[in-house]
Design a protein around this nucleic acid. Structure first.
Lengths: 211, 211
DNA sequence: TTTGCCATGTTAAATCTTTAACAGTGAATT
DNA sequence: AATTCACTGTTAAAGATTTAACATGGCAAA
């Protein structure tokens, strides 16, 4: 594996690696020691070539006739995706979506941990949600530094999205995942990923319509 | 606009059209009658060329120096994305995520309506969530037909995803949006879109790490 | 031992998507 | 009336991603 190339892994490959790992962890839990590219492919609904190509890109090489060593591959993907010390994450907006995400992470062994939730509703501040304490969104900026938070997930209402984003950026956040349908602005040094559920649903509707 | 070409609109263009429309509706509400490609671009964080190209693909043409007519464009995008009668949607799994989605749709004027929610928890069955009644997931198959549901959104736990998907398919669903981290299998006549929040978060983490 | 098979690893082609380049055009300006 | 300017519409190039094609290699069976 050439360290230099890891920087240039395609976005899509990164996404798939995350998914491969999850599938592999399941296999590992079931006692499977080796896996073929076409088995991974089947689970993920993609082609075996694509799996092999992704694995090639990260510089791993399987054994002929036995496929890939599950454990080794899990470790290697971890080296690529994770940081050694892990990263701290904050959820901004403790509505249903924020709680869904927080709850999903409960007990997951992962290098990403949600260490704080934020909301402006006084009823929520001070409470714990799935083990994560909710703080006043007014304290967001200072707590990012204090708790060494690198990533913020925005799950507030669309109207508050810009404000939440601003606070995150000013607090020195490094990456933002915005689940609001309202696009937000970040300076170039902050990595931004946006996802819009309504758009996805409308996309499904379009293809249902035209099929 | 050539009807034949609409079938071949790129996936990415479809997604952006949905987003343009939402931005345009906001502008319309603010009394704006015309808009330039670069204005739309700014809102969506993309380039003006891309906006113009998308609009070209759907066969609309703006006026020089004044840009696009907001209202006309909204109507045209509607003709492309929506069906005349609208489509019915079901949410399968009334956890936090299911409720987040259901709630988000409350009162939205749209051609997509969530007409039923499903869960297996007896405490939830019979209750209403954001105005949507929750039914027993055991009745999913029959209710799809009865309520003419075209699209199913899967928000159950990963363990129940396959089962929920199977019921949807057997009920004759036409499109599925799977928010479970567990990929599901559908026959070729069912349109499937999957989104995995964990993957997105891990992707952000990766780019935070490498930047 | 030889043959066939079924894997991986890799390069090349095809496809999809974005970006660049630029022609055309009408209002405003002089 | 001519000129400038700021837009749109469109084609061509570049870039990203997926898919195809095939070389290679080792195990199993004849």
């Amino acid at each position: 594996m050439d360290k230099n190339n890891l920087r240039h892994l395609p976005h899509k490959t990164i996404e798939r690696l995350s998914q491969y790992r999850r599938a592999l962890l399941l296999c590992h839990a079931n006692g499977k020691t080796h896996i073929f590219s076409h088995e991974i492919a089947k689970i993920q609904h993609i082609t075996a070539v694509q799996v092999r190509r992704d694995i090639m890109l990260i510089g791993y090489t399987g054994t002929l006739r036995k496929g890939y060593n599950v454990e080794e591959l899990i470790v290697l993907i971890g080296k690529i995706l994770d940081t050694e010390e892990g990263l701290n994450v904050a959820v901004v907006g403790v509505g249903n979506l924020g709680r869904a995400i927080t709850n999903y992470f409960r007990g997951k062994r992962t290098k990403l941990s949600i260490v704080a939730a934020f909301d402006k509703n006084p009823d929520k501040i001070g409470k714990k949600y799935s083990g994560v304490e909710c703080f006043d969104i007014a304290d967001l900026k200072s707590l990012i530094k204090q708790k060494d938070i690198s990533i913020g997930i925005i799950t507030v209402t669309p109207e508050s999205a810009a404000e939440a984003c601003k606070a995150l950026v000013e607090g020195g956040i490094k990456g933002i995942l915005n689940y609001t349908p309202k696009p937000v602005n970040v300076p170039p040094h902050v990595y931004l990923e946006e996802y819009d559920m309504i758009t996805s649903l409308e996309k499904v509707a379009f293809f249902v319509k035209t099929h």
